[in-house]
């Protein structure tokens, strides 16, 4: 824990137990992380389930929001995979909405960003790759592994190509999880650091004249972080769509 009086930009990622729970010898405590996951799900549910409850032909505000979200994800998915990708729509939609609302809720002062923990992003990435593998093997059987054998390559080069393809496939979940994790972590640390500069400069006598400079930067960074929060959710989703497209249409 940081000493009192100093600004610790890592403190915001600390997991705190709210309700200690122990299941099967594992620590399953209800933590601040779990709380914000629940809040994220609650927000998405409010918009999507409560918002669409009236089923109006002319939508209200909340229903418009629900429809925009629906169309946005549906267009993203069908744009990459075509119509047949719609069978993954609930999965991709849940993924996008969870990551997006978790990222956005993380922008609230004092909140906890669940997607800034690598275990969460890695779990999502593994889930995506598992879905891709299972869907690909169910849909195309052994044909699916043609994904690793590019066509039109001379025979002597083929082993190398297969190795490269396998490495690229295996690195997908790693890059997928690290990208989201890194962006959320770095952004929040940067925000906290610049916020800390403001506080430090204010307490530094004459130098406090300079305090507005990091404040302006912090404001600009906040705007940027909102963009990043959306963009990373979108990137995560569109890459998921690209990988799902491999499962639907293996073979280059």
């Amino acid at each position: 824990m940081a000493q009192p009086g100093t600004i610790d930009p890592i403190h915001q990622f600390e997991i705190q137990k709210l309700v200690p729970i122990n299941l099967f010898g594992y620590d399953m405590s209800f933590t601040n992380s779990a709380l914000w996951m629940v809040i994220a799900v609650a927000v998405v549910t409010l918009v999507m389930v409560y918002g669409s409850a009236s089923r109006s032909i002319v939508p209200g505000r909340l229903q418009s929001l629900a429809e925009i979200a629906y169309e946005f994800v549906a267009n993203t998915l069908t744009g990459v995979t075509g119509r047949e990708g719609m069978k993954f729509f609930p999965f991709v939609f849940s993924l996008f909405m969870f990551v997006f609302s978790a990222n956005m809720l993380g922008m609230l002062p004092g909140s906890f960003t669940t997607t800034s923990h690598i275990i969460v992003t890695a779990a999502f990435a593994m889930l995506v790759i598992t879905v891709v593998l299972v869907a690909g093997i169910i849909g195309h059987g052994s044909h699916f592994f043609g994904l690793f054998v590019p066509s039109g390559v001379p025979g002597w080069l083929l082993p190398f190509m297969v190795v490269i393809e396998v490495v690229s496939f295996v690195s997908r979940p790693i890059s997928l999880s690290l990208r989201l994790f890194g962006n959320m972590l770095a952004g929040h640390i940067a925000l906290k650091v610049f916020g800390g500069f403001v506080a430090a400069l204010l307490g530094a006598g004459v130098a406090s004249i300079l305090a507005p400079l990091p404040l302006l930067l912090a404001i600009a960074l906040t705007a940027l972080e909102f963009l990043v929060a959306f963009l990373q959710a979108y990137v995560f989703t569109i890459l998921t769509c690209v990988y799902l497209n491999d499962a639907l249409h293996p073979g280059h």
Partner: peptide, 30 residues
């Protein structure tokens, strides 16, 4: 372990709510 557990619980809940209730409903409205 705790994060994975709660992630599974919350994401599972979200998936069920979306796939069973929200998405069919919004799709039907549209």
């Amino acid at each position: 372990a705790g994060q994975l557990f709660w992630l599974a619980v919350t994401f599972g809940t979200l998936y069920v709510l979306m796939s069973r209730i929200a998405l069919p409903r919004v799709g039907a409205i549209m």
